[in-house]
């Protein structure tokens, strides 16, 4: 007590005390100064982002309320594109196909990738060879990947039909029947994407502390049980990132549709981005295309938030 009073009466200390006005000014100056490194670190990205990503995006939102606007002059039409979008049958089909594709692709890719990653994790010999070999398909350009799949699914010469024929089974019509065509597209995308996710999950598995697994072994937990009780919970935060990224990327399904099926048969493989692409460039229906892109953006944002809430909460609990 005495000490405080003594300090307060100290002329030096008193001199240092500032008025409210001075304090406010100093505070904002301090805050501004604290922003300097933020600008330095965030500036380069945020500048390029605002010019090359945010601006085109703002513009595309504006175009969704207009007709034309790329080659010819934009004409404001209010919500017309949006109401046309909501009543478009082909878009409904495209959305259904894309959703089905996203669910199957994520499920198949993630289960296969987790299986392979855990096999690689417990069998270290030749790991590098397997990693490179599995990543290889990602290097093949989409046009050629499509050609490869024409071969694989060829009615007479495709490897699967040759096997079926040897077993006296009926051959499959891969691209002419539903849901075969969509499943063929799923396999093409799984073929291309599997390697990336194997590496991804392998990295995750390798980060699980060895003592955790040893402890479980001593407790007599089998490998399946160890996988379920230790690997999966530890991987959950990783899964969150993976699911979000996979959602975003898979909703953009386009390449393999363009190369393999052009949306057919009977609209069995139209995807949302294929729908947008056709309106935007082939039909020059700019307004509908942009209304749909903004709509897709909103949908994926909602799904991401839901995924985040669902998986994010659980991962917090498990930590």
């Amino acid at each position: 007590m005495d000490l405080v009073e003594q300090n307060l009466s100290d002329p030096d200390w008193q001199e240092l005390t500032m008025s409210d006005e001075e304090f406010r000014r100093a505070r904002s100056r301090y805050k501004l100064r604290a922003l300097v490194p933020v600008v330095g670190f965030l500036g380069p990205f945020l500048f390029l982002w605002s010019v090359f990503l945010a601006t085109p995006m703002v513009w595309s939102i504006w175009l969704s309320f207009n007709t034309g606007g790329l080659i010819d002059e934009a004409k404001f039409v209010g919500l017309e594109n949006w109401s046309r979008m909501l009543s478009n049958d082909e878009l409904v089909r495209s959305l259904k196909n894309t959703a089905t594709y996203v669910v199957i692709a994520i499920f198949v890719v993630f289960s296969l990738a987790l299986l392979i990653a855990s096999l690689l994790n417990s069998n270290k010999r030749g790991q590098n060879f397997f990693k490179v070999a599995l990543y290889f398909p990602l290097l093949v350009p989409p046009i050629m990947a499509g050609m490869i799949f024409f071969f694989l699914t060829h009615y007479d010469m495709g490897i699967i039909n040759l096997v079926l024929q040897a077993m006296n089974q009926e051959k499959l019509n891969f691209l002419g029947d539903n849901p075969n065509a969509l499943l063929t597209i799923v396999s093409l995308e799984v073929w291309r994407g599997l390697g990336f996710w194997v590496l991804f999950f392998l990295a995750g598995l390798q980060s699980i502390p060895a003592d955790l697994i040893d402890a479980a072994k001593i407790d007599g937990a089998g490998s399946m049980r160890r996988f379920r009780k230790i690997s999966i919970p530890t991987l959950r935060p990783l899964l969150l990132f993976a699911v979000i990224i996979a959602l975003i990327f898979n909703f953009q399904l386009f390449d393999s549709v363009q190369v393999l099926t052009k949306g057919g048969p009977v609209l069995g493989t139209t995807s949302v981005v294929w729908f947008i692409y056709k309106r935007l460039f082939a039909f020059q229906d700019i307004g509908l295309a942009y209304a749909t892109s903004v709509g897709l953006l909103l949908l994926v944002v909602v799904l991401t938030v839901v995924a985040y809430g669902f998986l994010g909460k659980k991962s917090e609990n498990s930590n």
């Binding site: 995006m57 595309s60 953009q252 295309a289 897709l296 953006l297």
Partner: peptide, 11 residues
């Protein structure tokens, strides 16, 4: 993050 979700063709 939101800008990650726009189809590249649209931009």
């Amino acid at each position: 993050l939101a800008t990650l979700m726009v189809p590249t063709a649209a931009l």
